[in-house]
Computed example of a mutant assay.
Amino acid sequence: MSQFTLKDLARKLGVSPSTVSRALRGHPDISPVTRQRVVEAAEKYHYHPNQLAQSLQKKRSNVIGVIVPEIRHYFFSHAISGIEEVAYDNGYTIMVCQSHETLAREILNVQALVSNRVAGLLIAISSETTSFEHLSRTIRQRVPLVQFDRVVEELDTGKVVVDDYAAAYGAVEHLIASGYRRIGHMAGREGIALNRKRFEGYRDALAAHGLPLEEKFHLSGGYREEDGRAGADLYLALDELPDAILAINDPVAVGLHTRFKERGVRIPDDVALVGFSDTPAAALIEPALTTVCQPAFDMGRTAVSLLLRQFADGADFEPETVVLETELRVRGTSVSKEGPCR
């Protein structure tokens, strides 16, 4: 029995094949009534689009590749949800890969997705990605590419970020206003733009208020809870503790929080903490974590919308950087030394 084709389905419905195709992809130009007729007919006649044939014909599929450092990180899982929502509404599915914070895995992921003719790529780079020939090569192959959150600034692509400098600056100003003076920074790995901007915001806020940047309080590490616990051990080995710490993200802040409490350090009486991301854990620990809220879901939605615009514009697409707003959510880990923050 021969397979029921798109042209057969269009003939049964008395519409053009392009109308059937757009209806099945959920195109906004097709009315809900027509879309419903097409979907019901496709089910009745057991029509299934030949994705391989479409891929070969268009030289790309209806799949968008997404590469993130780790899905278990709440920020990235939430961003993926935003990506999937917009992609699905526009007739695309997504294929998600994890770099596990390694450049080697990231390169393999990019190669695999491009080889499978994905329509385009969305990527948040790994903590090891300080060289980016694999991404430059992808751009030269004319595969649409949008970066989000962690980006390579030198690449001329669409980007979706937050103002990491301003967010860090504001977080440190909050700590200063709350009475803290020996403020440390538990940073991420060097060479990543996001890390550099958060450090610069931290440094400049201290300088603006006449406070020193004490090198012993500035540590670098990874992005996981275990990195925060390791950082806490390093702080505890010093002759004195900082009285506040700005962490690169919430998992690191939670790791600091956990180890300090295990060792009898009082939070925030001995050490105040501020994180980044506003993960669910931030509100569940005691005292709850003050953190910079990043709009992860909106970042995912914005990134895929930028990619879809690149699909539509083709060679006329002009890359832009979209900067989303953050919000400092003050909780118990940074209560003022003189009392609750006002």
Score class of each variant (00 low, 15 high):
K7N: 12
K7V: 15
R11A: 15
R11S: 12
K12G: 10
G14F: 13
V15H: 13
P17G: 02
T19H: 14
H27W: 10
S31P: 01
S31K: 05
A41W: 09
Y47P: 02
Q51S: 11
A53G: 14
R60Y: 14
N62E: 14
V63Y: 07
I64Y: 07
V66Y: 02
V68L: 00
H73N: 15
H78N: 15
A79E: 07
I80S: 01
E85Q: 12
A87T: 02
Y88R: 15
G91W: 08
V110N: 08
V110R: 02
G120L: 03
I123G: 04
S126N: 03
H134W: 04
S136D: 15
T138M: 03
Q147N: 03
E153M: 10
E154L: 12
D156H: 10
D156L: 10
D164Q: 08
V172Q: 01
V172K: 00
H174R: 01
S178R: 03
G179H: 06
H185S: 03
H185A: 02
G188V: 06
I192T: 01
K197T: 01
E200P: 00
Y202P: 13
P212H: 00
H218E: 06
S220L: 03
E225R: 09
L238Q: 14
D239Y: 07
D239L: 07
L241R: 04
I245C: 06
A247V: 05
V252M: 00
H257V: 04
P268W: 05
D269I: 05
A272V: 08
A272D: 01
L273E: 10
D278N: 14
A282N: 11
A283I: 15
I285L: 13
L289V: 02
D298T: 12
A303P: 04
Q310I: 09
F311H: 15
D316G: 10
E318M: 11
E325G: 13
V330G: 12
V330S: 11
G332S: 08
T333Q: 05
V335L: 13
K337W: 00
P340M: 12
